[in-house]
């Protein structure tokens, strides 16, 4: 897997651009998962993913407002300095399943929010520019709140018993 561990955020605008992209990508990702669940008639999960997308939308709007004076950069996908193959706050697509339960979705979200926290935490611990550091601390704080929020939701949505993925019908022949 390719990753860019050595890259460091070097300006406030770049930090904001990454922070905004994290939220925008997360919105797309949750909608993508929502679409998948809709197509596969898992309506409970479709709604949950839409709610998660809505939550990220609010967050994205806040960042955009804060970036107004500093301005956002136009980066190509390869120019983002993600520690992994894509943005940190992204639910892993390969963990989706058509019969997944809220617990699974929240586990995906928890991992995503934790990765986002770690992304900003890394910046806080490595950058020298005090301004960038200050902003990164704020973003890290927000992500920590999100982690707590998801953890609280998980308390209400326990892990389903084994066999949650069972489907008595065989797959359908298509083309």
């Amino acid at each position: 897997m390719s990753a860019n561990p050595d890259n460091e955020i070097s300006s406030l605008s770049e930090l904001l651009t990454h922070a905004y992209a994290i939220e925008e990508d997360a919105i797309d990702r949750y909608h993508m998962l929502g679409d998948q669940m809709e197509v596969h008639n898992n309506h409970e999960l479709a709604k949950l993913f839409r709610d998660l997308a809505g939550h990220e939308e609010k967050h994205a709007a806040e960042i955009k407002a804060r970036a107004e004076t500093i301005g956002l950069m136009n980066l190509k996908s390869s120019e983002y300095k993600w520690p992994d193959t894509e943005g940190p706050e992204l639910a892993a697509l390969d963990e989706a399943h058509y019969r997944m339960t809220p617990w699974h979705a929240l586990q995906m979200a928890l991992k995503a929010e934790t990765r986002a926290f770690e992304f900003f935490d890394h910046i806080v611990n490595t950058v020298t520019d005090p301004e960038i550091k200050k902003w990164a601390e704020e973003f890290r704080e927000e992500e920590a709140e999100h982690v707590t929020l998801v953890e609280r939701l998980l308390e209400k949505n326990p892990e389903p018993p084994a066999g949650w993925a069972d489907d008595d019908d065989p797959p359908n022949l298509q083309e």
């Binding site: 998962l33 679409d35 998948q36 669940m37 809709e38 197509v39 596969h40 697509l93 390969d94 963990e95 989706a96 399943h97 058509y98 997944m100």
Partner: peptide, 10 residues
């Protein structure tokens, strides 16, 4: 258009 691919598909 929403894909018909199985969730989890590469």
């Amino acid at each position: 258009l929403k894909p018909v691919w199985c969730p989890g598909c590469g």
